[in-house]
Design a protein around this nucleic acid. Structure first.
Lengths: 218, 218
DNA sequence: GACAATTATGACCAAGCGGTCATTAAAACG
DNA sequence: CGTTTTAATGACCGCTTGGTCATAATTGTC
């Protein structure tokens, strides 16, 4: 008898609209009314799907994280260094649209970092990401494609941070795509050359029987 | 005859107060009145020194970036790759206190990125930083310490982004110093190995007159 | 102390916000 | 159809905020 609406679909549509508005006006300046208007509905309707602006924000962050996790984490290990490098290139070579979305994410997440819960979530994500890279690197070390001397766990985390830096800067500072591509190309070359070579020992003894403990969370 | 105030000093004092308040309550939640109260003056007085909240924010950013600029930019080029690597290590190996300060900076000013003026300020800083690295790299290329095939300008920017990523993550996610040090050590090794080696051509034509010496690598 | 120029004040305001709710519209069913 | 349940609406409210300004306080100089 009743009118029926696909709530999940609606919520997603609203999140899309919200991201658009946030990107356009900035999180601060964007109002609930703006979001509703962008979605083509009335303000009151929006409140049927999200109880507050904060809930809307959290939902955006959560969706973004989940998407990233899906996109990045659930991927097979590459079998060659070149394959891995190509993968890195894809990760770093974000489109303009993606860059915008990262910027919004940053802006939205900034204040959210005040909450320990958010900090944890983000930290966990990057921790997982770092471990995933570590895993990939170990795999290639076994295959002899990457110098065995590297501490894969540490390098994995380093990759996670570094790639994030590159992607974030592209989004935050609106680096033109063309210039960015050159940067990515050079970065990939640099990292590839570094991984291939036998690293010089640097004060830290790289024990061959590296037990690869992720060192756990606090 | 008149009452006289050192305006610069006053402005600095107000910026200090603002940073404290922003860090405490978050940028969004912090009001001009809060800042004034924290500084022990009336709201109206604050407006004698900063025309708006936005101006206050930009001033904070500018002061911070200027300080960083002084610290980082006005440094002589290193004459050897090892010297440069040691420099990179110092940059990345931030203390706990510095890490906290970075975190606050992120938390507080993330949302401030809506302000185009702020964005410009930040972008300009990292642009300068990228150029500084590019300069350093060119220098070492001339001396044959870094493979000539690299596009120094692009690599310089890449370094700026990557190092920022590493430092930011340390601050944001509270990476323990010990683990961070291992990461830095590995990162330096990786980057060093990458810079030293002759990069493999990647679709970009490298000029054949590659003067790079292996410089110690096998 | 009297003056003049500068600096400080905080009550005040308009604007705009997030959020509510009584009312209306829509649509699935018999 | 008419009925019934859900969905949609937007005027409205209370409250906070950034920002103003007429007034008061301060202080160097004579």
């Amino acid at each position: 008898m009743p009118k029926i609406v696909d709530k999940d679909e609606m919520r997603n549509m609203l999140l899309d609209a919200a991201v658009r508005v946030f990107a356009d006006k900035g999180y601060h300046a964007a109002t609930i009314s703006n979001v509703a208007a962008a979605a083509g509905i009335a303000k009151g309707t929006l409140y049927l799907y999200f109880e507050s602006k904060d809930a809307l924000t959290v939902a955006i962050a959560k969706r973004q994280f989940d998407a990233l996790e899906h996109q990045i984490m659930l991927q097979e290990n590459e079998e060659t260094l070149d394959g891995f490098l190509e993968y890195l290139r894809r990760i770093m070579d974000v489109t303009d649209a993606e860059a915008t979305s990262y910027k919004v994410f940053f802006e939205v997440l900034g204040p959210a970092f005040v909450s320990k819960r958010f900090e944890r979530e983000a930290a966990t994500f990057f921790d997982k990401l770092g471990r995933r890279y570590a895993n990939q690197i170990k795999h290639l070390q076994k295959r002899g494609e990457i110098a065995a001397g590297y501490d894969a766990d540490a390098i994995g985390r380093v990759f996670a941070s570094m790639l994030d830096g590159v992607v974030l800067h592209r989004g935050l500072f609106g680096v033109p795509r063309k210039r960015h591509r050159r940067m990515v190309s050079q970065a990939v070359t640099l990292l590839g050359a570094g991984l291939r070579s036998r690293p010089l020992v640097q004060g830290f003894a790289d024990k061959p029987d590296n037990k690869a403990r992720p060192a756990g969370a606090s």
